[in-house]
Design a protein around this nucleic acid. Structure first.
Lengths: 153, 153
DNA sequence: CCCATTTGCTTGACAACATGAAACATTCAG
DNA sequence: CTGAATGTTTCATGTTGTCAAGCAAATGGG
């Protein structure tokens, strides 16, 4: 039984090392992703936060509060970010006819174009993924989904 | 040949969709990772940047300039972050005997303890990974390595 | 050896991001 | 109709980030 216990411990230790390795790899990916996202945004004179908001609004117009929820920050913070985007003509505030308290932020034509170009310029993850076969990418997709508790998609 | 071309186009489109799906999943992971990292840091009254620097210095003491390189920011920025960590007794600046221009930042005993607790409290990526078999984690590790251009490790 | 240059760090001015409290208008519930 | 809750903004404050300027120390060509 001593041998079995030793084996079990060795397996546990190897497991922990493997997990730590994967966690470190994920940390590297997070770092690279941010780096490239900021750089891509900077090409259009945008900060990372501005680019994220613009990307959100290019999908669909959103009330200020919803933007804050997506960004996981306080609504008062969104005011300034949208201010700066609006000052550059990339976004506009519209009144919500259903609730006059609400201001709906929407991408302008120019804003939608910028968001499109920015998105297609995001080489990270897309370019390295090109080196993986379709089967491997499916495997990766399934593993990532399970990590995010999205078993079905 | 029209049929073959159509098939090729269909495959390309499916490939692009798959890639976009994986990219979106990675974006989700990046978002979750950040969220949890900030929350874990906040438990110790630290910001994300402070926690990152403390984690670096818990591994080994570093000159200010090296910290800036790891953080991918200007050295002048590191001054403030280390100032705040030092004010709380988590980090200290030491002179470098080999080069008197250099200030080496090092985690104090308290800083190392905080870094340890913080790291072990990082549930994300570690907890979801527990649901994956060792074989799956190895597969994930290899796929992530290839994404990062680290074929061998 | 000496001086110009480079290197490492800090300081100061400034902008963006982030929070929390307070103000305001509007909506909603009793 | 009144009081509570909601959506947004403003203000004060702190952290992060950049860049330019400054100082101390190291380095290398004359």
């Amino acid at each position: 039984m001593a041998a079995r216990t030793d084996t079990a411990h060795a397996t546990e230790a190897a497991d922990a090392a493997l997990t730590r390795e994967v966690v470190d790899l994920i940390a590297s990916i997070v770092s690279r992703y941010h780096e490239e996202y900021e750089a891509a945004a900077a090409q259009y004179g945008l900060t990372g936060a501005q680019a994220r908001v613009l990307a959100l609004l290019a999908r669909e117009p959103l009330p200020m509060r919803r933007i804050a929820e997506q960004l996981k920050c306080e609504p008062s913070n969104v005011t300034g970010i949208v201010d700066r985007l609006e000052a550059r003509g990339l976004v506009e505030r519209r009144p919500d006819p259903a609730d006059r308290r609400v201001k709906v932020a929407a991408a302008t034509e120019a804003g939608a174009q910028t968001a499109d170009r920015l998105r297609s310029g995001l080489t990270f993850a897309r370019e390295p993924l090109a080196g993986l076969s379709a089967q491997e990418r499916r495997a990766l997709r399934d593993l990532l989904r399970r990590m995010l508790d999205m078993p079905a998609g």
